[in-house]
Design a protein around this nucleic acid. Structure first.
Lengths: 236, 236
DNA sequence: CATATTCTGTATCCTCAGATACCGACTTAG
DNA sequence: CTAAGTCGGTATCTGAGGATACAGAATATG
């Protein structure tokens, strides 16, 4: 069966994708037969989708990596995300009324991409196959978690001063792992980027916090010495 | 039938809620019997849910209005949204792995709130009732659109200079309605708030743009005179 | 119509944070 | 082992934008 073999080739990769989490291998095969996805092959720097093109399917990177970039009204293109194997793209637009791709996806290295047609996902098949419920549940989870992440990002971006951003970030990290001692998951550049400030300015402020005895740190290892001061600083 | 009558009272309000868009009145009744929601009554300034409490249900405001507020680690409470009749809350958390309410909801005036249990929404009933598909589709749409909105917000917040923010905003508005002449949907305070800058600073920058002949404006009426200049300014 | 209140533009002052440059500590490659 | 590259801390300089204040326009209220 040609179609089956077409997917069989990628079954290993597909079963790793978060969208298919909790679905049996046999069911995945059944799903693929039902969803009738298309597999696209791309060479390095090929365009996978173009911003503004008609949106029809959700994409899943089976092999390789790709960049998501967006062009603003002035024509400047900036990279927003790097997609790796197993990553999904276009999942937020799928269920909205948006009809075109909001961004461009370009192969960074040779890529294989699975496209699931937007319409087939909710399922027009009469019977609700058992896997279909899990599939939709996965979808809801993925989109929700994206929204939660964006919400968190908005919170950080809304904070005015660098000092307050750092304090908020450190408190949250510390709370998450439940310890005074934190190992930052980002290096200085990435952290500065995440908080949307310049690296030297951030370092300067961290230095001040250290001088004041609020925190201590060496590279990515940070220790909170004075929680109260940290809390006071994040408000204003 | 007591249960039916309990919902019947609110059927008018419920059928207006976006979550039930496209579902027949009779089907809504069937749904409610299946979902077994709870209706809560609250007096002004009652707490409807408390941040940190166990999350169990999605809330829908049937009557009245309520505020959504969040407390940061320093203990400062700030209002994030105002919920009005027909608005939904807690819909993003419902399908994530988050187990507690991320924010507090408090009645601003006497409120009636419908709670739909988180677990019942995907539906464990064997047959996929016809309305259930639409219901889930509505859910996906609502959450997706929230994510898109947040994404847009992040884009604006990430822009560094006030000038670039204003230019980006004006270009987008103009593009949306397809005209040089825009009537802003926000007053200065709200716009400054949305762009996360101070009002006088924003006014100052708008004044400069006017002096340069890029735009002209009077209160909320803005006209774009030089698109090219606007585009050049939003990049840097 | 008169008064009160909210909204907007503008000026002044001053601080926070960006840009840039440089150095020392590590890492990797040859 | 040397050279080149990356990463983090720090200093200096400068300017963008925040805070504050006030006055005139617009709107609401009696």
């Amino acid at each position: 069966m040609a179609v089956k073999e077409m997917y069989e080739k990628y079954l290993e990769e597909i079963s790793e994708v978060s969208l298919f989490q909790g679905i049996e291998r046999v069911d995945i095969e059944a799903m693929l037969n039902c969803l009738k996805p298309i597999v696209g092959h791309y060479k390095r720097s090929d365009y996978i989708v173009n911003g503004g093109d008609k949106y029809e399917s959700i994409g899943i990177v089976l092999k390789g990596s790709a960049t998501v970039s967006k062009e603003n009204a002035a024509g400047n293109r900036s990279v927003m995300t790097l997609l790796k194997q197993g990553d999904i793209f276009g999942e937020i637009v799928a269920f909205s009324s948006v009809m075109t791709w909001p961004a461009t996806v370009q192969a960074q290295e040779a890529c294989e991409v699975l496209f699931l047609p937007r319409g087939k996902i909710i399922g027009d098949c009469e019977r609700m196959c058992s896997w279909h419920r899990i599939f939709i549940q996965n979808f809801l989870r993925i989109i929700s978690e994206r929204a939660i992440l964006l919400n968190k990002k908005v919170e950080y971006l809304t904070i005015k001063s660098i000092r307050a951003k750092i304090c908020a970030y450190l408190l949250e990290q510390s709370k998450k792992i439940g310890s005074k001692k934190i190992v930052l998951p980002l290096n200085r550049n990435e952290l500065a980027d995440f908080l949307n400030v310049s690296r030297p300015s951030m370092s300067r402020e961290m230095g001040k916090l250290r001088d004041e005895g609020v925190i201590d740190f060496h590279l990515t290892a940070v220790e909170i010495l004075d929680f109260q001061a940290l809390k006071n600083n994040m408000s204003e």
